[in-house]
C-alpha cells in the first residue's frame, strides 16, 4: 500500500522545468516531511500527488495503479489558505459534509464549535475555517493526506490542536501523510523522515 511519484517533472513549458526527475514514495501509516526553498515546487508536487495537476512527465501511482480520475480521490490535499478552499455561498455545515459526515468526536477534537455549523465562511477566521477543511479531508476513503503548509498561518495552539486530531485519525485509518512545511521544529515533531525537494533537483544537475 503506497503512494509513489516516479520520475515526475513539471513546468509550464517544456525546457522550462520547475522540477524534474522527482522520485518519492509514501507508505500507509507513514508521516513524511517535504522541504525545499520557496519556488522549488513543493506545492505543485503536492497538487500532482493529490490529482489537482497533471505532471508533464513521469507518473504517480497508488498501490501500483494510476490515480483515479473520477470519484472520491484517495489522496486528499489541505491548502495553506482555507479562505479559498470553501465556497463563500455555502453554510459551514454544508462545507463540512461535502465529502462525508464527520462524527462529533472528530469535531470536538478539532475544536469545532457546534454553533459554527450554521454560520457563513466570512464570519469565521482562517484558523476556524482550516479546522473544517481538515475535517472534510479526513473521510474514511482517504488513504493519504497532503498537508501543504496546513498550519503555517495559525497560532501554535490551533496548530497543535489540528495536528493532534489528524495524527489520531491517521493512526485509526492507517493513513499516510506528506507534510509540506518550512518549520523545522514541526517537521521534527511529526515526521519519521524528511525529503528535500531541492536535493532531488540538484541530483539531476
Amino acid at each position: 500500500m503506497q503512494l509513489e511519484a516516479l520520475n515526475v517533472g513539471f513546468g509550464y513549458r517544456k525546457n522550462n522545468w520547475t522540477f524534474r526527475h522527482i522520485d518519492l514514495s509514501l507508505r500507509k501509516g507513514e508521516i513524511v516531511g517535504l522541504v525545499g526553498p520557496s519556488g522549488a515546487g513543493k506545492t505543485t508536487l503536492g497538487r500532482i500527488l493529490a490529482g489537482y495537476e497533471q505532471p508533464l512527465e513521469g507518473t504517480v501511482k497508488l498501490n501500483d495503479a494510476p490515480l483515479p480520475k473520477t470519484g472520491y480521490h484517495p489522496v486528499q490535499l489541505v491548502f495553506q489558505h482555507p479562505e479559498k478552499a470553501v465556497n463563500p455561498k455555502w453554510r459551514m455545515k454544508d462545507i463540512l459534509h461535502e465529502g462525508w459526515n464527520p462524527d462529533d468526536e472528530l469535531l470536538e477534537r478539532l475544536g469545532i464549535d457546534r454553533d459554527w455549523l450554521q454560520r457563513w465562511p466570512n464570519e469565521l477566521s482562517g484558523g476556524e475555517l482550516q479546522r473544517f477543511c481538515v475535517a472534510r479531508a479526513l473521510g474514511p476513503m482517504t488513504q493519504f493526506l497532503i498537508a501543504d503548509e496546513m498550519t503555517t498561518m495559525l497560532d501554535a495552539i490551533t496548530q497543535a490542536q489540528i495536528w493532534q486530531a489528524v495524527l489520531d485519525m491517521a493512526k485509526k485509518q492507517n493513513m499516510g501523510i506528506l507534510v509540506i512545511s518550512h518549520e523545522a521544529p514541526l517537521l521534527d515533531r511529526l515526521c519519521s523522515r524528511i525529503i528535500d525537494i531541492s536535493s532531488n533537483v540538484m541530483r539531476e544537475g
Binding site: Y72, L77, E98
Partner: peptide
C-alpha cells in the same frame, strides 16, 4: 479554477 471547486471534484462530486 477556485480551490473549493477543485476540492469538490476530488471529493468525488
Amino acid at each position: 479554477a477556485a480551490d473549493f471547486v477543485q476540492t469538490s471534484r476530488r471529493l468525488g462530486k
